[in-house]
Computed example of a mutant assay.
Amino acid sequence: MHTRLLSPDDQGLAIACDWLSQGDLVAMPTETVYGLAGDARNATAVARIYEAKGRPSFNPLIVHLPDRLAAEKIAHFDESARALAQAFWPGALTMVLPLRENAGIASLVTAGLDTVALRVPAHPAAHALLQRFGGPLAAPSANPSGRISPTTAAHVADPDSGLGGRIPAVLDAGSCPVGVESTIIGWVDGQPALLRPGGIAAEAIEEVLGQSLIRPAINPDAPNAPGQLTSHYAPRASLRLNAETAGPDEVMIGFGKVGGELTLSASGDLTEAAARLFDLLRQADAMGRPIAVAAVPETGLGAAINDRLRRAAAPR
C-alpha cells in the first residue's frame, strides 16, 4: 500500500472523508500528536486501527468529536465533566466517562469497558475533518504500538519507524504544537483522577475543579485509559534518564543548563521541551547509539514529559 500525503484543503478533506466512510484509516494532525483515525462506529475500521499499529486489543482508544454536544450523545456528563469541557475543550484534555447505552460506538473502541475516552481537539485540520466527516473518529497516536509518537506527517509516513505502507493517507498540516498526548481524566468512586499526564497541566485542572486529583494505581495489564502500558513511546535504543553528562558512547539530550548534542530546551522552557520531545527521541535514535536524557522538573508539563520518558526507558 502506498501512503499518500494529503493537504488539509477542501480536496484533501474530501478524499480523507471518502476513505473514512469506506472503513479505511487516515492519519490526522491534532495539537498533541498525529492520530490514526477510523470511524468509531465501524467495527472493521477500528479493527484496522489495532492491526495497523500492532496494538493490543485490551488497550482502549480515544474518540475524537467536533464539540461537547456531540460528546454528550455518547457519554454521560456530570457537573464537573461539563466544567472541564467548558474550560479545556477544544484542547488537549481527554475525559473517561460512562458510556451511554446505544451510543453506537464499536465495542473494540472501549476494550469492553463501560466507559469511553472522549476528546474535542483544537487543531483546525482535525476540527475540519470531524465536521466534514460528521461522525466520531477513534484515533490513537499514528505510530506502531509502543514506539515514539509522531509529531509530523513524515514521522507517520516513514516506512521504517512509522505506518508508511500500512495506511492509505496522512493529512499533512505540519508539526504538532503541543507535542505530547492529551491529559486523561477519569472518575474513581466519584473522585476526579489523573489517569495520564499530558498536554494540560494537572494543576490547571485542579484549579477548575477546586479540588485535588487523585492518582490511582494503574494496572498496565488491564488499562482503563490509553497510554498506561509500562513500555510505551520507546526508541529502539536504550534510554538513560536524569543524566548529568553523556557516557562515552551515548547521545545526550540536554535540558536547561545541562547541554548535549541535542536539547529539549536550552532555556528550560517546558512548553518547548514538550513540543520537541518525540522529534528529538527520533533524531537521537537515528544516530544508532544509546540515549541519555537530562533531568526535567516534575511540575506542569514536566509531569507529562517525565511520564513519556519513564515509559520509553522501561524494560521491553
Rank of each mutant, 00 (worst) to 15 (best):
Leu241Asp: 12
Ala75Thr: 08
Ala153Tyr: 12
Gly146Gln: 09
Ile49Gln: 00
Ile218Tyr: 06
Met28Glu: 01
Val120Pro: 09
Gly12His: 06
Ala43Ile: 14
Gln283His: 14
Arg196Pro: 11
Glu206Lys: 11
Trp19Phe: 08
Leu281Pro: 13
Ile74Ser: 03
Gly91Val: 03
Phe58Ser: 07
Gly112Phe: 12
Ala122His: 07
Pro121Ile: 00
Val156Tyr: 11
Arg100Gln: 12
Ala266Leu: 11
Met28Leu: 14
Pro226Ala: 06
Ala201Phe: 06
Ala111Arg: 09
Ser7Glu: 15
Ser107Glu: 13
Cys176Leu: 06
Val208Arg: 14
Lys257Pro: 02
Gln191Val: 14
Ala128Glu: 03
Pro197Phe: 03
His76Asp: 08
Asp285Phe: 13
Glu250Met: 04
Leu20Asp: 06
Leu130Pro: 14
Ala312Leu: 06
Phe255Ala: 03
Leu281Lys: 10
Gly210Val: 08
Ala217Cys: 08
Val170Met: 07
Gly268Leu: 02
Cys17Arg: 03
Gln211Leu: 12
Leu241Val: 11
Met1Gly: 15
Ser141Ile: 00
Ala193Gln: 04
Gly134Trp: 04
Val180Ile: 15
Ala157Thr: 09
Gly112Trp: 13
Ser265Ile: 04
Arg82His: 15
Val63Glu: 11
Leu129Gln: 04
Leu84Gln: 04
Leu229Pro: 00
Leu137Ile: 00
Ser182Cys: 09
Ala204Leu: 11
Leu20Gln: 05
Leu5Trp: 13
Glu272Leu: 14
Asn219Asp: 15
Leu6Gly: 10
Leu262Met: 10
Gly54Gln: 00
Pro29Asn: 06
Asn59Tyr: 10
Pro8Glu: 00
Ile218Gln: 05
Asp39Val: 03
Ala153Thr: 07
